[in-house]
Design a protein around this nucleic acid. Structure first.
Length: 119
RNA sequence: GGAGUCGGCCAGGCAGUCGCAGUGUGCAAGCACUGAGGAAAGUCCGGGCUCCACAGGGCAAGGUGCCAGGUAACGCCUGGGGGGCGCGAGCCCACGGAAAGUGCCACAGAAAACGAACCGCCUAAGCGCUUCGGCGCCGGUAAGGGUGAAAAGGUGCGGUAAGAGCGCACCGCGCGGGUGGCAACACACCGCGGCACGGUAAACCCCACCUGGAGCAAGACCAAAUAGGAGAGCGUUCGCGUUGCCCGCGCGGCUCUCGGGUAGGUCGCAUGAGGUGUGCGGUGACGCACAUCCCAGAUGAAUGGCUGUCCGCGACAGAACCCGGCUUAUCGGCCGGCUCCAUUU
């Protein structure tokens, strides 16, 4: 049975990782809520990085909430995603959005990026 | 019961499931336990801790500001004094000095401080005129009106031409003493002074007391690349640092010797001025003794997602070295003390 855990292995951990994705991003997808960048890797698993600014999300409680919901979406979708490094950037549109809307938006992004990587 | 006031507390609960961080255990898979706040916030004060400066002095700068106590310390807290508000419980106050000096006091008003006279009141004394009623001059006055935030003690009686601390009584004020209090201060105690002292010190200033600089990205250790350091001697023109400045001091400089430490990692990093309970001391803040508990520790940064269910449908809001305060944000609810009003037996 597949596990849906989310250890350090599946995260971008330092500035170097982030810079590489920003420089070499091979596909991107965005809407009013998020911009998602992706960069294919030689790993056999996907990894996630988050950028949630105070400007986009407001105070610390809201920013944490958004990060948590994005991580949750990634965790549950990890086995359908291609082996790439992702960065999810929150945009001002995410303010005051419910979990349902956030999940719907992210699902669309995951699908689009997976299709782009397959080409 | 209604209105009010003060203090304390809670901050959705429960269940299932998938996850995250730490600790323990296990060879491992795993399992067990624990996991945000009263403000975690603003970074406004005070301390611990760390490194630097630690020779010291002067000037400057900043802060605090009734008294006593508490505390590691404070700009905090407690108790007390004084002033103001409230019927009251209670609340509010940067609350030292204005006869050391300088400055300022808009508008209005005659006048805003070495000290005034616009309207008014008076015409006793002196002079002039007179129709003998008075009128004018020279003057007196600060009671009344008016202006203002503030107008040179208040009330009453006497007094007077009208008035006035001009005199007297009471109240107030100032100075000296006495008594009580650790003190701030108080006194329906005594004496002296008719009163001589407007306000403003979050204006300069004076007085008393306090303050070295930076901050956990502090700092310590392990350590790839590249080339940077450590020790000893010599020297003090210049530059840099040392607290803003002046001294003073240190480093850079030259010679010799030694081998080295950025990315990353580990520590700092959570047992503490700690919580809870009981007893004792104290009006209280708080202190002491004993017992007991271990209560987040991340580092691209954990404490969450989904489902069900219940209720009064859940505010402000997320630890980042740690404490003590202050301030600000905040849906709703609970408990207790006290005050005022109404009412029942």
């Amino acid at each position: 049975m597949r596990r849906f855990t989310f250890p350090d292995r599946l995260r971008l951990l330092n500035r170097g990782d982030y810079d590489r994705v920003f420089r070499n991003c091979s596909s991107r997808s965005s809407d009013a809520l998020f911009t998602v960048l992706a960069c294919t890797t030689s790993n056999d698993y996907p990894r996630l990085g988050l950028v949630v600014s105070r400007k986009a999300a407001g105070n610390a409680v809201n920013r944490h909430g958004i990060k948590r919901r994005v991580r949750e979406s990634f965790r549950l979708g990890q086995h359908t995603l291609p082996p790439a490094d992702f960065i999810v950037i929150a945009r001002p549109g995410v303010r005051n959005r419910g979990s349902a809307e956030i999940n719907r938006s992210l699902a669309a992004h995951w699908g689009r990026i997976t299709k782009q990587c397959a080409r």
